[in-house]
Computed example of a mutant assay.
Amino acid sequence: MKKIVGLILVFCWSIHIYASKVDTLLVYSKSMNKTIKNVVIIPDSYSKKGKAYSVVYLLHGAGGHYKSWLGKVPDIELYADLYKVIIVCPDGDKTSWYFDSPIDKTMQYETYISKELIASVDKSYNTVPDKNNRAITGYSMGGHGALYLAFKNPDVWGVAASMSGGVDLRGFPQGWDIYKRLGTYAENPENWENNTVINLVHLLNGKNLKFLFDCGTDDFFYEDNVRLHKKLLVRNIPHDYIERPGGHTNKYWVNSIKYQMLFFSDFFYNSNN
């Protein structure tokens, strides 16, 4: 009898895990003159005409694509159900770094995500179309992108986070095609200085954005995240900072997203009650 009950529970749990629906949303980017694929995860409670939903945007890392989050964190579908949110995973090209590149007009991903994609998501789904119901995070390049976009567009996102983010690009002048987006550091230092997260702290007033960032102590981006944390302390900018054992790995990100989704859920609840 116990074995039968156990099988029933496992079966019901499996049904719940896959209750959410995964869409592919095609969005035409006028700024880049191309159509971009995006994963959209809809919770099982979703209704087109019922209560509107908050939206969490998840950015992938260098070399990734719009399906990367589904592969790296299979439970991401469960989080949509658990927190009753819509989750959007954009394609950010393999190494866009989520800039509007000053040297390559085919790479305008700040405009795409912060304007074109959001407009399309709000038009296509039953969302609450305001900053207090939008969150953004990502891993590695996506962690940089999430803070970069949120720091520069606090009227778009009310809450943001980063995991293992490349928050200071200047130490990696040959890394991950960044020089293809900003030009070489030697010839275009102003592009690098103006487009790295740690240099955008001046855009924060301590009230216009709630945010969290974390990094593993064995990560090659760890020291940069520590410096960002210390700079924010000096500027007296409220933030949540977490460091824990771990490297630049899927295992770390699987653990990290659990905390960040709860952080977002608390923000949505407090903003709407």
Rank of each mutant, 00 (worst) to 15 (best):
G64K: 09
G171P: 04
N126E: 01
G165T: 03
D104V: 06
R170K: 15
V156P: 10
H60K: 10
S120E: 15
D155Y: 06
M141E: 07
G92P: 04
N194Q: 15
Y66T: 10
G64C: 07
G183Y: 09
P189Q: 09
Y179A: 15
S140L: 12
G175S: 14
Y98E: 03
A80I: 02
S68C: 03
V121H: 02
A146C: 08
E193C: 06
D75L: 13
S120M: 10
N194F: 02
G158M: 04
D75K: 12
Y148D: 07
A146G: 06
S96Y: 01
V55W: 00
D93V: 10
D91M: 11
E193Y: 12
Y109R: 13
N126V: 05
M141S: 01
D100R: 14
L58T: 02
S114H: 01
T127Y: 03
L117N: 12
S162M: 08
S68L: 08
D104W: 04
K94A: 15
A150C: 06
N126H: 04
L182T: 11
V56M: 01
S124G: 08
G64M: 08
V197Y: 02
K180F: 01
D81T: 06
S124N: 15
W97P: 01
K94N: 15
Q108E: 14
G171E: 07
F172M: 08
D130H: 13
P74G: 03
P173E: 12
D104P: 09
Y179R: 13
Y66A: 08
Q174N: 14
L78T: 11
D81H: 07
G142M: 02
E110I: 11
L147P: 05
G165F: 00
L147D: 02
S162W: 06
S164W: 00
L58E: 00
D81F: 04
